[in-house]
Simulated scan of single mutants.
Amino acid sequence: MDMPHKAGGFELDRKLERDTWDVIWLGLCELRIMNDARWPWLILIPQRRDAVEIHDLTPLDQAMLSFETNLVSKTLLEVTGCDKINTGALGNVVRQLHVHVVARRQGDANWPGPVWGFGQAEPYRREDLHSFVNTIKDRL
């Protein structure tokens, strides 16, 4: 049985925990990477209990989420040299508030369509995952 990640009463959704790996803690969010090597795909998860929508956050937390999303987006663009950064907070499958930041290239899997629900995830090789995570950490 999966045990939820807990921090100050916060519990990470089990699906997010299962499908992602830790990268780094930011001021408000835990940054995680989606275990799908088809796209460089990071996820920011505000560590606030019961947050489903951005408007559930305090105004200060909303500003911090915006700052951290911009920081991660810029870093991902610099690291990957991608053509486009996609960001989104959908929450249709996992209700817990989280923001996807995905690096896209023309010609990548499903370009220009969305990454959500397309094909089967291709898990990272362990060494590639560690290398990419360390690069992101170093740049942040």
Results as ranks from 00 to 15, higher is better:
M1E: 08
D2N: 15
P4D: 05
K6W: 08
A7F: 12
A7G: 05
A7C: 12
G8E: 11
G8L: 14
G9A: 04
G9L: 08
E11W: 11
E11S: 15
L12H: 04
D13V: 09
D13Q: 10
R14I: 14
K15R: 15
L16Q: 14
L16W: 12
L16G: 11
L16A: 12
E17K: 15
D19H: 05
T20A: 03
W21D: 12
D22S: 09
D22P: 06
V23K: 01
V23E: 01
I24R: 13
W25C: 13
L26K: 01
E30F: 06
E30N: 11
R32F: 06
R32I: 08
R32M: 07
I33V: 12
D36E: 05
D36K: 03
A37F: 03
R38T: 01
R38D: 04
P40H: 08
W41V: 02
W41L: 02
W41D: 01
W41G: 01
L42R: 00
L42W: 01
L44N: 00
I45H: 00
I45V: 15
P46S: 03
P46V: 02
Q47F: 02
D50A: 14
D50G: 05
V52C: 09
I54W: 05
I54M: 13
I54C: 06
D56T: 09
T58W: 02
P59E: 07
D61H: 10
D61R: 04
Q62C: 04
A63F: 09
A63L: 12
L65G: 06
F67G: 08
T69N: 03
T69P: 00
N70A: 13
L71T: 15
L71G: 06
K74D: 10
K74F: 09
L76Y: 01
L76Q: 01
E78P: 00
G81Y: 08
D83R: 11
D83I: 12
D83V: 11
K84V: 15
I85A: 04
I85S: 03
T87P: 00
L90V: 12
G91M: 10
G91H: 13
G91Q: 11
N92H: 12
N92K: 11
N92A: 14
V93T: 14
R95A: 15
Q96I: 14
L97F: 12
L97V: 07
H98A: 10
V99C: 15
H100T: 00
H100M: 00
R105S: 13
R105E: 12
R105L: 13
R105W: 15
Q106N: 11
Q106M: 12
D108H: 04
D108W: 05
D108C: 06
A109E: 09
N110P: 05
N110D: 12
G113V: 08
P114F: 06
P114Q: 07
V115D: 00
F118Q: 07
F118E: 09
G119Y: 09
Q120G: 10
A121K: 13
E122K: 15
P123F: 08
R125P: 11
R126T: 15
D128V: 03
D128K: 07
D128Q: 09
L129F: 09
L129E: 10
L129S: 10
H130I: 11
F132W: 03
F132D: 00
T135G: 07
I136G: 01
K137T: 03
D138S: 15
D138C: 13
